[in-house]
Design a protein around this nucleic acid. Sequence first.
DNA 1: TCCAAAAACGAACAAACGTGCTTTTGGGGG
DNA 2: CCCCCAAAAGCACGTTTGTTCGTTTTTGGA
Lengths: 226, 226
Amino acid sequence: MAGLAEKLSDRQRDILNFIIEFVTEEKYPPTIREIGKQVQISSTSVVNYNLKRLEEEELITRRKEKSRGLALNWGKLLTEGLIDESQLPGVAIRIPVLGAIAAGEPIQVIPSEANNADDYLEVTEAMLGDARNTDKLYALRVQGDSMIDASVMDGDVVILRHQERAENGEMVAAWLEENEETTLKYWYADGKRIRLQPANPNYNPILCDPATVHVQGKVVGVYRSI
Amino acid sequence: MAGLAEKLSDRQRDILNFIIEFVTEEKYPPTIREIGKQVQISSTSVVNYNLKRLEEEELITRRKEKSRGLALNWGKLLTEGLIDESQLPGVAIRIPVLGAIAAGEPIQVIPSEANNADDYLEVTEAMLGDARNTDKLYALRVQGDSMIDASVMDGDVVILRHQERAENGEMVAAWLEENEETTLKYWYADGKRIRLQPANPNYNPILCDPATVHVQGKVVGVYRSI
DNA sequence: TCCAAAAACGAACAAACGTGCTTTTGGGGG
DNA sequence: CCCCCAAAAGCACGTTTGTTCGTTTTTGGA
């Protein structure tokens, strides 16, 4: 394999980049003339000529006599190193909204039984710093203002990754037996006690017995739709 | 609200379904004649007529005199129950992150010059209840804890739709001349004064002269990545 | 330097495509 | 019954857009 990137002329690379940009921006492919205008080619036939080359390299697909009848071959563009992952059209991840999270109630749902949820939150991979283990992700709608200390409001949706243990510094959703409430706090194991630190520094941390704190999951993100 | 689904004629529903199917399949929108052929409409003007209706309902967007210049408003299709989540394309929309929003500084960037942003926030159309005017969307990173009264923290990303006037009850990002700061508040025009109401009821509203308040945009969403 | 292939060019053509105009159809209300 | 009007239909016009062709320029190797 001769490295396709070097085989392309500057113009062909320009054309390719413009098509990529145009498609991600406008949601449909450009016309020959729109390409020509951007890449400083006065003649439509020259654009057509280079598109034919790109088609021979199977970087694009064309449909005869159809306006805007061209499509990018994202897979090959990626394997040939002509684009990187960040340029790929973002893929949506569907996170099941398993229920609500309220002050006075534990989270009752079991994430592993997340099959027949009727409510989903669609996010993108880019929104999750770490796109692994997406099958362990679930979301909960916040009810009430009891988590205002974490700047989480009534109606917010919290995205969680299911796990039962937490590392120091992770933000977790935890059920506190003593207070009989679910809370969102930063987790610190200070010696024999667990320190739960609110995100808002104006509030005081809670110290409690590890046996009475039940981690429901790690908080990955919070979304508020206005 | 009269339930938009009933307001549509059978033909309009057919057209809509075909566009959805076509876009999902071909990755670009159909032409008027391609629609007509499928929906058994001999006249292009009838298709055009119904497309105009669909545009009035803000279910689609059209670009004048551009071939295949139509786009679906997935967000509204979803909220109106015309499609379900499974039909949503796994495609993300990219919102340019134009800069930061901090207490002591006005927002300096002009959304219309949002071309060469190097930072993007990828979201899904489902996250925006109303996916119109996606080109007017932009995002800002929050610096500092000055907006804690709106439960917006340092590091949060605020998604905005550019507009210079606000309706009562809308949450806006506004520059206050008197205080020399940008703030996120609910907008109420009470007589001759503007009342800016914090989202957190524990804080007090601000009353100010309309001439000294500059709306930067309507807040559409807030995302916090942990 | 010369030559042939590749690339670029300009113009013209034809198909595709959006738009506007006029006419017809089909109820619903006065 | 007539009138009104949304909806549909057919058609034609002008623009957009893809294609083709003859020619010129550039490129690279003999």
